[in-house]
Structure formats: structure tokens, C-alpha cells
């Protein structure tokens, strides 16, 4: 009887120690689920979801505080991917958070810009260059199209320009039979 108790007690201690050691030794930094959700999000950092950036939204989704349909730039495809990842039901984009728009970049009208630096402070990815009382310009390759620079501009010199199709980013269309007949 005593021997059995002793064996169980020692076993519990050894296993507990092993588990305790493993939890320290193999501790995962950060929440892997948050990282996975963040990888799906488009990183526009626009805040349309109601959180100050993509990462905070990912954290909220992981905790179950936010729904998966609050990201307009991610669009339907993003919601589908999130639904797949989290094993939830797909739902359409929530209207209160905005609508899916074609990818655009901000363009500053350089004739109107007064050099107030307000847009520079608003840009979440530092894609606007300029200095006080100097003309500003958007580095379009880095612009995520978040539109956060539009409201602070006192002279409304920033417009969103849709990224058009060019030879570099043109995509072959899904093969449709009639396309071949019309060739030429």
C-alpha cells in the first residue's frame, strides 16, 4: 500500500518536473495563432476594422473579441482564408467597416501641397517623404492604400488612384472557350 503510494507520488513529481522544465525550455514566443492570422491580413494598416493596425486586429480575432469579417482590404478572399484557418463559417464583409475597393495608391497633387507634414505623420508605413514647408510625395511602391492620409490634409491635395493593369502585372484570364473563337 505505502509502496504503491510512494511510486505514484514519485512518478507525479518526476513527470511534473519534466513538464515544468519543458514549458520553460520550449516556450513559444508570441501567439502562433496571432502570427497566422496576421499573415493572412493584407497589412494595409488602415484601421477600418476598428483596431489601430493589422496586428491588433489579429490579436482581437485570436481572442474572439473581433469577428473575421471586419477587414475590407482583405476582401472576401481574406475572410475565406480566416474562416478556413479558424474553422468558422464564412460570412460576408460587415458593411459598417467599409466596402472592398480595388487596390489604390495615394497621389499628392504637388501644385497644391503646402508642406504641412500632417500626412507624413498619418502614414502608417512611412511611405510619404517630405519636410516642413517642402513638397511631399508618396512612394507609390510602398503605399498600402489605407487612405489615412486623406482626412488630415488641410488642402485636400491627396487623391486615391486605382492601380491600373499594365504589362507587368497583367494576368492571363481563366480559359474561356469563346475567347479562342474571337482571336484576331
Amino acid at each position: 500500500m505505502l509502496a504503491a503510494l510512494l511510486v505514484m507520488a514519485v512518478g507525479a513529481l518526476v513527470l511534473g518536473a519534466a513538464l515544468g522544465y519543458a514549458s520553460v525550455r520550449f516556450k513559444v514566443e508570441g501567439d502562433p495563432l496571432v502570427e497566422k492570422i496576421d499573415a493572412i491580413l493584407p497589412q494595409t494598416q488602415c484601421g477600418q476594422c476598428g483596431y489601430p493596425g493589422c496586428k491588433p486586429y489579429a490579436q482581437a480575432v485570436a481572442k474572439g473579441e473581433a469577428d473575421i469579417n471586419q477587414c475590407p482590404p482583405g476582401g472576401e478572399e481574406g475572410i475565406r482564408k480566416l474562416a478556413d484557418l479558424l474553422g468558422r463559417e464564412f460570412k460576408p464583409l460587415s458593411a459598417e467597416h467599409g466596402v472592398e475597393k480595388p487596390k489604390s495608391v495615394a497621389v499628392i497633387d504637388e501644385n497644391l501641397c503646402i508642406g504641412c507634414t500632417l500626412c507624413i505623420q498619418a502614414c502608417p508605413v512611412d511611405a510619404i517623404v517630405g519636410a516642413a514647408k517642402q513638397m511631399h510625395t508618396v512612394v507609390s511602391a510602398q503605399c498600402t492604400g489605407c487612405e489615412l492620409c486623406l482626412p488630415p490634409c488641410p488642402v485636400d491635395c491627396i487623391v486615391m488612384q486605382p492601380v491600373g493593369e499594365d504589362v507587368e502585372n497583367w494576368k492571363w484570364k481563366y480559359p474561356v472557350f469563346t475567347l479562342h473563337r474571337r482571336a484576331g
Partner: peptide, 10 residues
């Protein structure tokens, strides 16, 4: 592009 934006934002 998303990876770059994330890096720049962080």
C-alpha cells in the same frame, strides 16, 4: 508587398 508593409509598420 504585405510583408514589406508589416515590416515598415512595425
Amino acid at each position: 508587398a504585405a510583408d514589406e508593409a508589416r515590416e515598415r509598420y512595425e
